Amino acid sequence: MTDKMYTSSIEMVEVSPRDGLQNERAIVATADKLTLIEQAIATGARRIEVTSFVNPKAVPQMAGAEQVCAGLPQRDDVTFIGLVMNPRGAERAIATGRIDQLGAVAVTTDRFAMANQGQTSDGSVEASKDIIRRAQAAGLTGQATIAASFGCPFEGEVAEDRVLAMAEAIAEADPVEIALADTIGVGNPAHVERLVTRVRDAIAPLPVRVHFHNTRGTGLANLWAAIGAGATVVDASIGGLGGCPFAPGAAGNVATEDVVYMLERAGIATGFDLDLLIETNRWLAGVMEKQLPAMVGKAGGFPRPETKRKEELA
């Protein structure tokens, strides 16, 4: 089938409480956000992007970030991540005393960077480095995502060399990892394999994380290509919810249920319980009052739970 040597396990970051919800018009109550986080932990999530510290006028769904943090469970085995865009956001996150890791965002193009966070692309790189260093000074860890790594909603194609230069610059701040994000879901497996390989080699031994949107149905194929190219951490969102308010046409993230199903069936351990993920999908669909995009949430796993029980009793 292939001569690639795939890893035996993969680390996953659950992003539904932040990226999954931020583009939804119906405001989700703090209590439901906390229940989502608790259920994510129950399914096996050990790194969770719980909120973002941004201006609530720009992203109304993220209002009450401090309240979410105040209600987080006490778990020494879970890393709670707060997304921040600038020093003010970083200080807000640090002040909660509940965030373990700051996530910064750098953007590959000036037009998207201005729309997303009011600064140039180069400015977003410097801001990311500053956020990572602020996290370290506060006794936390920091990481960065390079948004629109595979294409920009405003400027179109993005040169691989630009992404590579940004990754090398951010690596100077010693983050725990650097993520490549397909913010608007335009990537293809060949492009993903090539870019992940180049960035992996450039920033080693720092890990490469990947963040894919399934806007055009290529999310899982891209994720598989990224793992084959050496990415060791992947983002996913329960239910497949997600999108960027500042990126026209962006749609949902790859669904945690779909990723776990694919990887576990392929012999790559994730640490997640698929049956509990499907149950959480159904609960979240009730909260959102709509069916969620995740395919496994609709179709169910395989073998079916009743088939598993029959095999165990045989």
Rank of each mutant, 00 (worst) to 15 (best):
residue 241 L to P: 04
residue 265 R to Y: 07
residue 249 G to C: 04
residue 255 A to D: 05
residue 266 A to V: 01
residue 248 P to D: 13
residue 272 F to N: 02
residue 248 P to A: 13
residue 259 V to F: 08
residue 269 A to H: 09
residue 272 F to I: 07
residue 271 G to M: 08
residue 261 Y to V: 02
residue 267 G to I: 12
residue 243 G to T: 11
residue 257 E to M: 15
residue 250 A to M: 00
residue 255 A to F: 05
residue 273 D to H: 13
residue 270 T to K: 04
residue 267 G to A: 06
residue 259 V to T: 15
residue 242 G to S: 10
residue 253 N to R: 03
residue 263 L to H: 11
residue 245 P to R: 12
residue 254 V to P: 00
residue 251 A to D: 02
residue 266 A to H: 03
residue 254 V to W: 01
residue 263 L to S: 12
residue 249 G to I: 12
residue 255 A to K: 06
residue 273 D to Y: 03
residue 263 L to Q: 09
residue 258 D to F: 08
residue 251 A to Q: 10
residue 270 T to H: 06
residue 253 N to K: 00
residue 272 F to A: 01
residue 255 A to E: 12
residue 243 G to F: 06
residue 274 L to A: 11
residue 252 G to V: 00
residue 245 P to L: 07
residue 245 P to W: 14
residue 260 V to H: 14
residue 249 G to F: 13
residue 253 N to M: 09
residue 248 P to S: 12
residue 248 P to K: 06
residue 250 A to D: 07
residue 262 M to L: 15
residue 274 L to D: 03
residue 261 Y to I: 08
residue 247 A to C: 14
residue 246 F to G: 07
residue 244 C to F: 07
residue 269 A to C: 01
residue 270 T to G: 01
residue 255 A to Y: 03
residue 274 L to R: 05
residue 246 F to T: 12
residue 252 G to H: 03
residue 261 Y to Q: 12
residue 260 V to D: 12
residue 251 A to Y: 01
residue 250 A to L: 01
residue 259 V to S: 02
residue 245 P to V: 13
residue 263 L to D: 11
residue 275 D to R: 09
residue 261 Y to A: 07
residue 272 F to S: 03
residue 269 A to N: 11
residue 264 E to F: 02
residue 266 A to G: 08
residue 269 A to K: 15
residue 257 E to Y: 14
residue 256 T to W: 00
residue 267 G to L: 10
residue 263 L to V: 13
residue 270 T to D: 01
residue 242 G to K: 02
residue 269 A to W: 04
residue 250 A to K: 05
residue 268 I to Q: 05
residue 273 D to A: 04
residue 250 A to N: 05
residue 274 L to K: 05
residue 272 F to D: 02
residue 258 D to V: 11
residue 264 E to K: 06
residue 258 D to S: 09
residue 246 F to R: 11
residue 266 A to C: 08
residue 258 D to H: 14
